[in-house]
Design a protein around this nucleic acid. Sequence first.
DNA 1: TTTCAACACGAAAACGTTTTCGAAACCATA
DNA 2: TATGGTTTCGAAAACGTTTTCGTGTTGAAA
Lengths: 340, 340
Amino acid sequence: MRRKVTLKQIAKELDVSISTVSKSLRDSSEISEDTRQKVQAFAKLYNYKPNNIALSLKNRKSKTICIIIPEIIHHFFATVISGVEHIANENGYNVIVCLSDESFDKEVINLETLANGSIDGFIMSLSKETQQKRDFHHIAEVINQGMPVVMFDRITNDILCDKVIIDDNLAAFNATQYLIDKGFKKIGLISTVDYVSVGKLRTEGYTKALKTNDIKFDENLIIKIEDTDNFESQIETLISNNDLDAIFAVNEIFAVTAIKVATRLGKNVPNDISIIGFTDGIISKYSSPSITTVSQNGVKMGEKAAKMLIEKLEIEEEDYEEQYKTEVIETELVERESTI
Amino acid sequence: MRRKVTLKQIAKELDVSISTVSKSLRDSSEISEDTRQKVQAFAKLYNYKPNNIALSLKNRKSKTICIIIPEIIHHFFATVISGVEHIANENGYNVIVCLSDESFDKEVINLETLANGSIDGFIMSLSKETQQKRDFHHIAEVINQGMPVVMFDRITNDILCDKVIIDDNLAAFNATQYLIDKGFKKIGLISTVDYVSVGKLRTEGYTKALKTNDIKFDENLIIKIEDTDNFESQIETLISNNDLDAIFAVNEIFAVTAIKVATRLGKNVPNDISIIGFTDGIISKYSSPSITTVSQNGVKMGEKAAKMLIEKLEIEEEDYEEQYKTEVIETELVERESTI
DNA sequence: TTTCAACACGAAAACGTTTTCGAAACCATA
DNA sequence: TATGGTTTCGAAAACGTTTTCGTGTTGAAA
C-alpha cells in the first residue's frame, strides 16, 4: 500500500524544484525538452495524478454539482439523476446525490453542509414538507452567496432561479381531453393534496378540460391523497360509489392501484373503465394491462437542468448577468392498454 | 451576492491574527473570553462557515464516499443508494453517485477520476462488461493505493476486499424448493447469461434444488437471456413449447414478462402456472397478480456496505490490519398472488 | 571583451484551514 | 528587584497545486 505520489516527492527524487515538475507535466515551454521528458517518465512510472482537492482549493471550484431530490426510489427521480449524471460527466463534473426524504430539515442540512466549497451548484426538487411550509430561506441564502441553483419539477415561484419543468397543467388538460374525446363524461381524478405543486397543477388541468368541454364538474369524482398508506381504500370508495367511465391518476402508483381495485370490483380495464396515469416508469410499462400515461421524460429534464447549471458555472465572473430562464420540457401521451 | 467570508477576512476586520480567529471559533482555551466572544459574534454575523475543501486538504480526507452502480434505474440499486446515503449522512459523510452504465470503461474512469483525493472510499457493484472481461486491475489499483473498497451484489472473488452479498445460490434454492413443495415438477428457469455473477449463482441454486429432490434436470426448461431487447419472444417460446407447472425468474422484469406472456397464451397465473421472481421492487408489488418473489432488501445491503466502509475509514492508521469480511444479507421469500 | 537576449529553472505567493511553537505581557512570589 | 509561571496571542508550517516573477547561465552579436 503505497501512498499517492505528490509533486513534492517527485521534485525531491529528481532534485529539481516543485515548479519545474509542475511545469514539465503541463508541457510548459519554459522547461527544456530534457528535463520535461525525465519528469514525465518518472511521473508515469509512479502513476502520478494531481490531487483533486488541492486543485479545487486552488481554482476555487470543485467541478462537482449536487442534486437534491425527495426520494430516490421514485423512478422519475432516478431517471432525472441519470440525465444529470450523463451531462455532468460529459463536462467533467461529478454528481453528489442528496436525499431530503421529503423533509424540510434534511433539505436545509444538505444545502448548508455542501454550500461551503464542496460543490459549485445545486439542482433540486423541493421536498413535500418544504412546499407545505413555503419556507425557502435556505435556498435564497445559497443563491445569495453566488451559488447557482436550478430547480426542477417541484419548484416554487417564490425563488428566482433557473427552472426546468413540464407544463403539468397542460399535460393534465391533454390527458383529460384525450378521455373526453373518447366520449367519456364521468371522469374521476386521483390527485395529491394541493400543497404538492405538481398535484395542484394537474388538478387544475383536469378541471380546465372539463370546463372547456362543458362537462359538469363533480366534487365527488375527485380524491386528493395525503398519506401513502391507506390510499387504496380511498380509491375503492371512489370507484364503487360512482359509475365512472374513466380515471385520470396523477402518478403511476395511483394509476396501477386504480386498475387493481377496479379489476377486483369486477370492472374490466379498459372495457368498463379507462385509466390514464402520469409518469412513464416501469410500472406503467409492465403493468397488465399496461398503462396509458403522460410521459415526463425525466432523463431529458435532468439533462436540461444539468446543462443550464453548467452553463451558469462556466461563464466568466465579469460576463455574469443575473437572468433566469424557465425551460419547459415537452410531455407526451403514451397510449397503451389501459384506455379503450 | 456576497462571497463567502474567510478566516483571513475576519482576522483583518478585527485586527487579530488568523490563528486567533481559528482558535476562537474552535473555543480554544488559549484565547481570552473577551476576544473569543468578539470573534464568534462577528463570525456569526457574517455567517462564517469553514471551507470544506480547505479542510479536506488539511485533513487529507474528504468525508465523501462514492458509490458506483451499473444502472440507477433499477429499483434494487436505487434502494441500495438509499441505504448508503442514510448511514453516510448519519456519520457526516457525503455520497457521490457514479453510474457505469454497465460499461467497463466508464467504471475505470469513475475510479480513476475520484481516487485522487476527492473521496475516501468506494462502494461498488460490478458492471456487466467488467464481469464479462474479468478485468479488475482498476479496482486492485485503488485498493493498492490504500483506498478502502466495499463491493456488493455483483462481486468477484478475484479481488480481496470487504463484500456484502446475499446468498444467491441459497435464495434460488429456497425459491425452487418452495415450488417443488407445492408439488410442481416441470419448473422453468428464466436466467441471465452466466457471466453475470448473480445470474449464474441463481441458476446453480435452481439446479441444486432439482437435484436434491431427484427431479430430472431438463436443459430445455432453461433460458439464459443476454440482451434486454427481444427476451419476450424467448420467454414465449419457453412457455408455449413446454407444459410448465411453474417458473422461477431471476429478476422482476423477467417475472412480470413471464406473467404477461403466460396470460396472453391463455394460461392463468397462478392457477395454471405459478411464477416466482427475484428482487422485491415496485413491479412485484404492483403487478397483477402481484408477484411472489425473493426479497433482497437493498436498503439493508446499502446500510451494511456503508457501515463497513466507514468503519474502515475511521480506524487509525496504526491500528490498521488488512482483514476483509464478507457479509451475507438475509433474503426472504415474499408470498404474493403469482404462486398458488 | 562587453552587452544583451534567450533559455532554463527556482522561490514564493496563493487558495483556506489547523496546529505547533515561540514570544510577549502580565502577575505573583521570593 | 529578580525570578518564574500564566495568560494571550502571532508566526509559520503544512496539506498539494499553479503561476508569476526573478535570476543565473548560455550563446551570439557588437
